[in-house]
């Protein structure tokens, strides 16, 4: 017996080869359920930990991918929401303008302010509309008069703003009916020029366009009287007007196009 065991040990290589191949082929010859029975313990000992890790990793990767997709969606939705909010505010402003300016003899052309001339103390702005814009047309927003079209290249035009030196408006005090000319002031606000010392203008009065210059129709709100200085030696009063329009926050405006012929020049 000892002899046989020793001999087997010395020549174990052929036995290992034959044994291995025979066992393999026997396993291959088994029925599928029998194979599964043999494979199951091996799977449970060796594969289950890795399957568990693999499943967790896959879940983690899925969560990461979902997270990235949601982040991207979130950015898109934020941008969309921002656009909707802009559109809502724009819509609101235009509605306000239409409510304030129910002028049957004018067509109101909506336009966006696309640039400012900052080098010249906010004296002009560039606007763009979807329609052709003529020169010298009045420009308004929901608060009041903004200026007039100085030049146009079609749908893009330069607006001379009310606070600039190139825009003057024939105006009147809405309460006292006193006439004057709105022009730019070197300091803060606008100047109501040409108001004689004997004419009444009081702080808090609303100034509107008089319609006399030919460019601006009557009744467009310009501003409110902020200060009135009467100097006995002077012929005219010095009337400072605070404009209604916030020229630092111009966004959407309306160009007033007369429906029958030219209103202005």
């Amino acid at each position: 017996m000892k002899w046989a065991t020793g001999r087997l040990y010395r020549n174990r290589k052929p036995f290992l080869i034959i044994g291995g191949l025979v066992v393999s082929l026997l396993l291959f010859a088994l029925q599928l359920d029998q194979k599964a029975f043999v494979a199951r313990p091996l799977q449970e000992v060796f594969y289950t930990p890795f399957w568990s890790i693999s499943n967790k990793l896959t879940a983690l990767v899925n969560v990461y991918n979902n997270n990235m997709a949601l982040k991207s969606e979130n950015v898109r939705l934020k941008f969309e929401r921002m656009t909707f909010e802009q559109n809502r505010l724009e819509n609101q402003r235009f509605r306000e303008m239409l409510r304030l300016l129910p002028r049957p003899d004018f067509k109101l052309i909506p336009a966006d302010v696309i640039a400012h001339d900052q080098g010249r103390r906010w004296s002009s702005a560039i606007i763009r509309a979807n329609e052709y814009i003529d020169q010298f047309l009045p420009v308004v927003d929901e608060k009041g008069l903004v200026g007039k079209i100085a030049s146009s290249t079609g749908t893009v035009a330069t607006v001379s703003l009310l606070i600039g030196p190139n825009c003057r408006v024939a105006s009147r005090d809405n309460q006292t009916r006193t006439l004057g000319i709105i022009k730019w002031n070197t300091g803060r606000g606008l100047l109501l020029d040409g108001v004689a010392v004997e004419n009444d203008v009081f702080p808090g009065d609303t100034i509107i366009s008089s319609g006399m210059g030919g460019v601006f129709p009557e009744g467009l709100t310009v501003g409110v009287v902020a200060k009135v200085d009467t100097i006995p030696t002077e012929v005219f009063k010095r009337v400072i007007i605070e404009p209604f329009v916030d020229f630092g926050a111009l966004d959407n405006v309306m160009v007033m196009k007369p429906l029958r012929g030219s209103f202005g020049n």
Binding site: L25, L27, F28, K35, L42, F46
Partner: peptide
């Protein structure tokens, strides 16, 4: 090497019971 290879081959084969034995062989 031979018994280790056989055991390793069997473990690899256990992943797919349908071909158990064939891959090992």
């Amino acid at each position: 090497a031979l018994p280790t290879s056989f055991a390793v081959a069997l473990i690899i084969d256990a992943l797919n019971p349908e071909t158990l034995g064939l891959g090992t062989a």
